[in-house]
Design a protein around this nucleic acid. Sequence first.
DNA 1: GCACATTTCTATACCACTAAACGAAGGAGT
DNA 2: ACTCCTTCGTTTAGTGGTATAGAAATGTGC
Lengths: 379, 379
Amino acid sequence: MSEEVRKISQKLSAPLLVSQPVGGSVSESISENRPTGKYRRAVTLRDVARKAQVDPSTASRALRPSTRGLVRPDTLARVLSTAEEMGYRVNPLARGLRDQRTMTVGMMLPDLANPLFPPIVRGIEDGLRSAGYALILANTDRDPNRERDMLAVLMDRQVDGIILATAEREYPVLDEIAAQMPTVLVNRTTDDFLVSSVSSDDHQGIGQAVRHLAALGHRHIAHVGGALRASTGALRYQHYLGWMHSEGLPVDQNLVVFTDWFTQDLGTQACLELIDRGVEFTAIITGNDLIALGCYSALKARGLRVPEDVSVVGYNGIRFCDQFSPPLTSVRVPKYDIGLRAAALMLEAIEKPEAPAVAILLPTTLQVRASTAPPRDGR
Amino acid sequence: MSEEVRKISQKLSAPLLVSQPVGGSVSESISENRPTGKYRRAVTLRDVARKAQVDPSTASRALRPSTRGLVRPDTLARVLSTAEEMGYRVNPLARGLRDQRTMTVGMMLPDLANPLFPPIVRGIEDGLRSAGYALILANTDRDPNRERDMLAVLMDRQVDGIILATAEREYPVLDEIAAQMPTVLVNRTTDDFLVSSVSSDDHQGIGQAVRHLAALGHRHIAHVGGALRASTGALRYQHYLGWMHSEGLPVDQNLVVFTDWFTQDLGTQACLELIDRGVEFTAIITGNDLIALGCYSALKARGLRVPEDVSVVGYNGIRFCDQFSPPLTSVRVPKYDIGLRAAALMLEAIEKPEAPAVAILLPTTLQVRASTAPPRDGR
DNA sequence: GCACATTTCTATACCACTAAACGAAGGAGT
DNA sequence: ACTCCTTCGTTTAGTGGTATAGAAATGTGC
């Protein structure tokens, strides 16, 4: 029935080379040395200048706001209107070559398919776009070789700055990168505080989680943490310790396990290990939502129900948290805003390369859902 | 406890301007007109040529593989080694300006945060990357103005091609775009078959869904479709009709509703409308997974259970389908592969602009999960 | 009416790279 | 010894835009 739409091939209609009629006394057409290819060539500054009867440099002046004052009003108007009329647009390549700027920012991230990143990327994207910058993404899959390669690719492209979502606490390349161009870290930071960063306030976030569980009556709260070599993993663990203490709850290192990375499978493994230690607990604070999902599987495998037997709190508040079974209580981090801020910071860094580094922490909100409940009485 | 990591600001260590010692008889340093800024300037072709004692154009020949044959072996070696030694990298801006190619492809998509897109984008990204191309994303949020703007931005940047995930069946801008540069559609197509596209084989996909439900014993299968102005919405609807007929199942237009767009909320609305028509059905085939989630809510709101009272089949097989409550049976489309293919097609189109358009359909697989079950007996 | 200041525009040069045309050197052929 | 050819390199010019210096036009004051 739909066979007619399958694997068909059909000639492209040959497009017209629209050669805009050039009125007035200047007779040359726009870029007479037009290539013979399929596509139309763009109008250049020279084309505009010729038609407006001025020198290209005058046209250039007229067209860029900052130098506009150096042009007599009537000339200005003439240039502007012919430019408008001819549909002139500056060629950012040419301008970039001259100014040594590409108006492009590179971003390295582990994997766009990780649901944490798309909203951040959108934020960055939108933030940069409003200032005329474009974003080039490079996924590294946490492969150090690929990371090097992608970095080289971005550098080669002369990006005006680099945003990194790939940083680990020890991250030797960073020095090298930061020495070459403006650099901003998102979501994660390094131990050496050299470079600006934007992330969520994990202190506050873990606090919300601990206090929420404490308020429900939990005392034996476990931690299935993320990778300690990532700042997020380490910080959340530290803040877990800190808040447990300050809430007067017992901390037992047998109730703490770590994953090697922030994935569902590793979360399951770690959680199974935790359970099999046989130390009693009624709630888990996890390193992120994926690990939390891993805990769901592990708990289920050992016949424990969420939240009846064990409450689980995630971190990040990725999309679909509310659709999980049960819906996952999670510390929501403002992902889009993190991106926006990172973009703003990048623009600032490009503008003023000598400005000092800043760490920006954005507030989290606890989203309480069905994965947390009071512990069964008696425990 | 973590106060020390909060809102700190600290001077960046001033980086050294590493001025590589230039040996040999040529005494000028690399780019003596180095700017005074924070960052090091790149080594140019001239620098290499000077040091290797050849003309820049000879160096250029030596350095690009295609013209390498025109250079005597010893000269070649000398140029190559000095280039290596000085860490020379071509400036893509300059090359792009000369060759009128940016080695960059633009992509317009509605919203990266839609879980359908990240895997596709990764595929495109990886496919392009391997050929030395980079990808620039532009999110449009389906706002026609934004769409125009983003398009202009991409054009201005002289991208070598455009990949569109924003096409609707009637999509007037497309002609204009396709006349200007290589264009490839992903996921969706237009009614006028002018431009190459890569999407999933919806005929096969819906077939899998219908036959799965039929095999379970369902006869009254409803369709909560997507937007008809998108090819995906229209095709899936048509194929639903087709397969229902060919499976000998009754088609009742009262069992068909459409959403205005592929979102969860609109899915809920549409499904509520469907239920309130009072016509009996035991299963729903939806326009995509988000609509399926919307149906979950609607069914729940009317006291119907999935899958006991109504089976639900999604489309796309987005991430976390298996975590939903209940886990969603869905037609999985090979998102990453779609991206890869789109990239390949784009590269081909850039290479040979006159090549005819092709529509590539990739096979789907039905992932059966807990949202589908046999209908309760008696119905 | 002239010197001088100011405004407005043009010419030049450069950003980094490369295709095409050109030229020099060396070898082969007669 | 002379031309012709091949090989390898350089010169030239051009990609589009803009800062800078300087030229031309205009205005000002006496």
